[in-house]
Amino acid sequence: MITLTDVHKAFGPNKVLQGVTLTIPSGTSMVIIGGSGTGKSVLLKSVLGLVRPDKGTITLDEVDVTRTDRDAFLARFGMLFQGGALFDSLRVWENVAFRLMRGPKALPKPQARDAAIEKLRRVGLKPDTADLFPAELSGGMQKRVGLARAIAAEPEIIFFDEPTTGLDPIMAGVINDLIREIVTEMGATAMTITHDMSSVRAIADTVAMLHGGVIRWTGPVGEMDATPDPYVQQFIHGRADGPIESVR
């Protein structure tokens, strides 16, 4: 279980997080929604330790993430980055098998390659993509490779940062379905940040809305449409009028 308590983060005068409190139970899929620039990525990176909060605590299974062994902590995570963040200089299979070939339990190269090809197949990519470089792939294929890399070491917790941004609706649907299938199949805890409502409905068990540096609303995805919260209603229906300023 991931628990965030009163997490604050500011960049200079810009107070991005102003007291975020949130719990993500093990084995559930939490989707965090919110407008651009509301701090969704900062929140996610704070859990991973890529950003250090100014105040507040983040615990994983009741252990403070800042006081745990970093390698052991990160070994439990997989992450799909918004732009894929694939390593340009490595081939597709080397990207996917990056973690598998390093560390105390490193696999020999042929086994790591086989495991990478298996993961590529799992995300719907043919084995012949394994020897290509990321620059030779389309945006949708890069996202799938990023997803294969995120699940390669079969992590307990997977983070998805804007998984469908920049994809056409069909490819976005394919990625959403893959995420849902993989999370269910692996029994993983998932935390996704997005402002794509089709992703929310496809991926989420629970939804949290981040606005003004705090969690504005949280609840099961089935209750999202019925909530009277004007911020949630404006956001999920994409209305220009409402309490969320359109110019931010």
């Binding site: 990176k45 991973l48 330790g49 890529l50 970093r70 390698d71 990160l74 070994a75 995570f77 997989g78 992450m79 980055f81 918004q82 732009g83 963040a85 694939l86 390593f87 340009d88 990056f98 973690r99 390093r102 560390g103 890399r149």
Partner: peptide
């Protein structure tokens, strides 16, 4: 620098590197 702005360096950290 390009690796940094395309989050490849963050990706390295998440891969325990």
């Amino acid at each position: 620098g390009t690796m940094k702005v395309t989050e490849q360096i963050d990706a390295l950290v998440t891969l325990s590197t």
